[in-house]
C-alpha cells in the first residue's frame, strides 16, 4: 500500500509541482490544502503518512499548524517547505515536530530525496 500524502501550499502551481513529483514517485496524494484551517482539518481527518507544509499560508504560519497537529496527536511526518532565508522559521518548525525541511525553489529530485529520508 502506497504512502499517503497531504500537500499544504497556497500556490496552486506549487501544489501541482509537488503532487506531480509525489505521484510520480508512487505516493498517494490524499489531499491538498491552500490554507491553514483546511490543512488542519484534512490532516486530522486523513491522518496521512506525510504532510508537505508550506511555511507561509494566507491565514497562519506553518509552525502554528505544527503546534495544532501536535496537540491533536496527528502522527504524520511533516516536511517543512520554506522560501529561502527562513532558517529561523525552519528551526522553529523542526523543534515543533517537523521531520525535515526543503527550501523553495526545488527540483523534483530534491523533494524526493527529502521525502525518502523522512519515510525511511
Amino acid at each position: 500500500m502506497s504512502k499517503t500524502v497531504l500537500i499544504v501550499d497556497d500556490s496552486i502551481y506549487m501544489r501541482s509541482l509537488i503532487k506531480t513529483a509525489m505521484e510520480g514517485a508512487g505516493f498517494e496524494v490524499v489531499g491538498e490544502a491552500q490554507n491553514g484551517e483546511s490543512a488542519i482539518d484534512l490532516a486530522v481527518q486523513l491522518q496521512p503518512d506525510l504532510i508537505t507544509l508550506d511555511n507561509i499560508l494566507p491565514d497562519m504560519m506553518g509552525f502554528e499548524i505544527l503546534k495544532v497537529l501536535k496537540d491533536e496527536e496527528v502522527p504524520s511526518k511533516v516536511i517543512m517547505v520554506s522560501a529561502v532565508g527562513q532558517q529561523t522559521v525552519v528551526n522553529k518548525g523542526l523543534s515543533l515536530g517537523a521531520s525535515e525541511y526543503i527550501v523553495k525553489p526545488f527540483t523534483e529530485e530534491d523533494l524526493l530525496k527529502v521525502v525518502e529520508k523522512v519515510l525511511a
Partner: peptide, 13 residues
C-alpha cells in the same frame, strides 16, 4: 508549472 511555482517561490523569498 515548475516555472510558475519557482517563479512564485522566488517572489515569496
Amino acid at each position: 508549472t515548475t516555472l510558475v511555482a519557482n517563479q512564485n517561490s522566488y517572489l515569496d523569498a
